[in-house]
Design a protein around this nucleic acid. Structure first.
Lengths: 329, 329
DNA sequence: ATGAAAGCGCTAACAT
DNA sequence: ATGTTAGCGCTTTCAT
């Protein structure tokens, strides 16, 4: 079934059907109603391929996501989906696998093959340059813009500020310094958090202890914890995500350290179980939805060159629970 | 740029370019090489909209996902993406929001508007009938087939068997019965787990205690735990997911019950932090990737009417850690 | 306010 | 093994 069938039934031209279905002006109310009725009756849907071919626009946005169910990336993806839906764009998703040599470049290329009006690269890993010629606007969420494209937009997830707030919280409590269990440094997200931590320490002239680099897993947090437990003078640790914080706490407790009496721990993300582990975890919550909305409105603006909605910066959301306390006397 | 440009550069007809780029037979090696070179040199990509329009196939699969970052749904989505990619289909994602009156029907409709060759409905919520005429094959993951479509396939996530194994484990340990903290019963996934639990109890003639219904959150598990703590005779609890199990354990511990000495707890999912909470959680691991691969190969088969790869059933993966033990004497 | 005609860039069907 | 000819079902452009 095609729009001509609808046209015939409504007694108008095919073009008029097109006008009505695209909400174009200059259609009389009566004709509009008749067309809508005919379409309804026929169960007609516009053919998207034909639309895309004729107009050169696909009305879709491609997302390069990380192929992981980790809370942060997964939440951001959900946020992007919601935001995209609100803008009227469909979503095409490709994910990159860690260690894939093609990485982001391959993912972007596959989106370009599919045809998209814009691309979102969600918290990419630092894979080196992306050697793909991109001719649509690109939004990079949570990484420095480093792509070859006519328009590269970026929206910050403000991980730096949040990491700084987490570290400051510990410093405010009286700790002489704060240790850091970092995420894998190939991730920009991990780099940002480490930088924020570093900035906070520097601002107070606190010594910067060596960093433990994990891989986001509770497993790696646990390993870091075993080492930290043997390191003298550790009274406060900032972990780059909650999972590592949880592994860390487990290691600390197993080796006889009390949390928070002996060692304070702060996580990052505020995963849903954070309030229910022992002890309830102090952490910082990322405004995924706000970041996604803000970023997508930039992207859609770039695609359509339309008016840009104002965006208010999000406050950093530090959630103090029971895993942090002043240092032991 | 169009394929004719490539054809001109390679000195062949446009159709030959089409042949080469679609890996069709009857092209000489030499011509193939020349075409590929010309395409490469021009940075040419096939126009997907034109392809779709001409062929009637979009080479894409639509997914109706749940708009949540919960570990289970998120993992399944990742699995679907990976599996789809392996089959050569692009992915279009729409998510349903809990409580959306349009629900699955709206999501499916939007996929149909976009144009997809097949649809995957991932662990849907029981929203009642889906009043959409679907003319492409539909794969339903983890729910009874209840859609109007020419071909409804379904792949089981085997939650029933897994719930049964979890319950059996507790019964094997000597517990007289097992309490259940269920997921929201509007979710088929929650219904399945409850059924599996019920089946296990019935098979041993164990009494079936009243069920606590949570909402998957640690929060609701905690609430159930506070109540369970006041219920006499509770020595074993099976929670429908790990998050609820974690909240549950917290409540139990807060009210002076030891886990597992007084009360054993089994979760469901094997979230990454499960080994690191206190006590390490006994749980059952879902084979998301296998389910997704199996389901998608069914779907692709239905789309292409091609040979169906053999699929081996997945064994139930019960992971016994420290949260379960025999009942107190 | 509405319509007619001309593509959009491919694939399908049919030559050769 | 390669080329030719028609569409696919819309939107665009230009009339009216």
């Amino acid at each position: 079934m095609r729009s001509v069938d609808v046209a015939r039934l409504a007694g108008v031209s095919q073009k008029t059907v097109s006008r009505v279905l695209n909400d174009e002006p200059y259609v009389s109310a009566d004709v509009r109603r008749r067309v809508l009725e005919a379409a309804e009756q026929l169960g007609y849907r516009l053919n998207n391929a034909a639309r895309a071919l004729a107009s050169g626009r696909t009305r879709s946005i491609g997302v390069v996501a990380l192929g992981t169910a980790l809370y942060g990336p997964a939440s951001l993806l959900i946020g992007i989906e919601r935001a995209a839906r609100d803008t009227g764009y469909a979503l095409r998703v490709v994910s990159t696998v860690e260690g894939d040599p093609n990485g982001v470049a391959g993912a972007v290329s596959s989106l370009l093959d599919q045809g998209v009006d814009g691309i979102v690269i969600s918290e990419p890993i630092d894979d080196g340059p992306v050697p793909v010629k991109i001719d649509v606007p690109v939004l990079v969420l949570g990484a420095p813009p480093s792509f070859t494209a006519p328009q590269v937009l970026s929206a910050s997830v403000r991980a730096h500020d949040m990491a700084r707030a987490a570290t400051d919280h510990l410093l405010d409590l009286g700790h002489a310094t704060v240790h850091h269990v970092a995420g894998p440094q190939r991730w920009f997200a991990a780099q940002d958090r480490l930088d924020g931590w570093r900035t906070a320490l520097a601002a107070r002239d606190a010594p910067e202890p060596p960093v433990f680099e994990g891989d986001w897993s509770a497993d790696s947090g646990y390993a870091a914890g075993r080492q930290l437990a043997q390191t003298p003078g550790v009274t406060a640790v900032f972990a780059a995500n909650d999972d590592m914080a949880i592994g860390l706490i487990r290691a600390l407790v197993e080796t006889g350290r009390r949390v928070p009496e002996d060692v304070s721990v702060v996580g990052f993300d505020d995963v849903p179980v954070a309030p229910y582990i022992t002890p309830p975890l102090t952490t910082v919550r990322q405004p995924f939805d706000a970041v996604a909305r803000e970023g997508l409105s930039l992207l859609v603006h770039a695609i359509e060159k339309r008016d840009l909605p104002a965006t208010g910066g999000q406050p950093v959301d530090l959630i103090v629970r029971a895993s942090t306390a002043p240092p032991p006397a």
